[in-house]
Computed example of a mutant assay.
Amino acid sequence: MTDSPSEPTAGAARDRATAPGAPRWVKVSGAVALAVVVLFLVLHLTGSGVGPGMHGGH
């Protein structure tokens, strides 16, 4: 049996390696949005400070 040529797989790997990633501002925006959602969920589940009556006296 002969070995398959390595050129097509090397070219495909090279194309994947040079593909641009997401810009930094997209990653930062996503991280901030995720943090806001997690903060909202934590506050909502603990029952502190989210919703109508948040500023009212108890």
Score class of each variant (00 low, 15 high):
residue 1 M to A: 07
residue 2 T to H: 08
residue 3 D to T: 01
residue 3 D to K: 01
residue 4 S to W: 04
residue 4 S to L: 09
residue 5 P to H: 10
residue 5 P to I: 05
residue 5 P to Y: 02
residue 5 P to E: 11
residue 5 P to G: 03
residue 6 S to P: 01
residue 7 E to Q: 07
residue 7 E to M: 01
residue 8 P to N: 07
residue 8 P to L: 07
residue 8 P to V: 05
residue 9 T to S: 02
residue 10 A to D: 11
residue 10 A to T: 09
residue 10 A to P: 00
residue 11 G to R: 05
residue 11 G to T: 03
residue 11 G to M: 02
residue 12 A to Y: 04
residue 12 A to Q: 09
residue 12 A to G: 01
residue 12 A to L: 05
residue 12 A to T: 02
residue 12 A to K: 07
residue 13 A to C: 05
residue 13 A to P: 00
residue 14 R to P: 00
residue 14 R to I: 03
residue 15 D to C: 00
residue 15 D to W: 01
residue 15 D to L: 06
residue 16 R to S: 08
residue 16 R to Y: 04
residue 17 A to R: 06
residue 17 A to P: 00
residue 17 A to N: 10
residue 19 A to I: 08
residue 21 G to V: 01
residue 21 G to Y: 06
residue 21 G to C: 03
residue 22 A to K: 13
residue 22 A to V: 08
residue 22 A to W: 12
residue 22 A to D: 14
residue 23 P to I: 08
residue 23 P to T: 07
residue 23 P to A: 08
residue 23 P to K: 00
residue 24 R to C: 01
residue 25 W to P: 01
residue 26 V to K: 14
residue 26 V to D: 15
residue 26 V to M: 15
residue 26 V to I: 15
residue 27 K to Q: 14
residue 27 K to I: 15
residue 28 V to W: 14
residue 29 S to I: 08
residue 29 S to M: 11
residue 29 S to T: 15
residue 30 G to C: 12
residue 31 A to M: 15
residue 31 A to L: 15
residue 31 A to H: 10
residue 31 A to F: 12
residue 32 V to W: 13
residue 33 A to W: 12
residue 33 A to M: 12
residue 33 A to H: 07
residue 33 A to C: 13
residue 33 A to Q: 09
residue 33 A to G: 15
residue 35 A to T: 15
residue 38 V to P: 03
residue 39 L to E: 13
residue 40 F to I: 12
residue 40 F to W: 13
residue 40 F to A: 08
residue 42 V to P: 00
residue 42 V to K: 01
residue 42 V to Q: 11
residue 43 L to K: 03
residue 43 L to Y: 01
residue 44 H to T: 14
residue 44 H to L: 10
residue 44 H to W: 11
residue 44 H to S: 10
residue 45 L to D: 09
residue 45 L to K: 06
residue 45 L to A: 13
residue 46 T to N: 12
residue 46 T to S: 12
residue 46 T to A: 11
residue 47 G to Y: 07
residue 47 G to I: 02
residue 47 G to N: 07
residue 47 G to Q: 10
residue 48 S to A: 10
residue 49 G to Q: 13
residue 49 G to A: 13
residue 50 V to I: 13
residue 50 V to Q: 00
residue 50 V to L: 07
residue 50 V to G: 00
residue 50 V to H: 02
residue 51 G to T: 09
residue 51 G to N: 07
residue 52 P to V: 05
residue 52 P to K: 00
residue 53 G to Y: 04
residue 53 G to K: 02
residue 54 M to Y: 00
residue 55 H to C: 03
residue 55 H to K: 01
residue 56 G to C: 00
residue 56 G to F: 01
residue 57 G to Q: 11
residue 57 G to K: 05
residue 58 H to I: 03
residue 58 H to E: 09
